[in-house]
Amino acid sequence: MSATILSAALTYAQFALALAGCLACWRLLRGPRAQDRVLALDTLYVTAMLLFVVAGMRLGTTFFFEVSLVIGVLGFVATVSLAKFLIRGEIIE
């Protein structure tokens, strides 16, 4: 009984997060301006991070935890440097 509930909820969460990633991708491709794309990329990173947490729950391993943490860190650095680039037109000054 509980396995049915949990696996249904996990499937729903995986589908919802995958759809969320697709929607973020749509905004990433569509634009219209550069800041929209960076915002969409940041959202995509967060969604992918959560998707890995859910995948770890489904498979019952904690190994995906490190994966999601690395994705989170990379997403943060990427977004900050892209935003900095949008402000200044250069990253290293």
Binding site: I5, L6, A8, A9, L10, Y12, A13, Q14, A16, L17, L19, A20, G21, L23, A24, W26, R27, L39, A40, T43, V46, T47, L50, V54, M57
Partner: peptide, 21 residues
Amino acid sequence: PIALFLVLGSTLTLLGTVGLV
């Protein structure tokens, strides 16, 4: 509660990206 939190969290994330679009 695990299923509830999962559904709540993923639905809110999905709604956020719906808003983004």
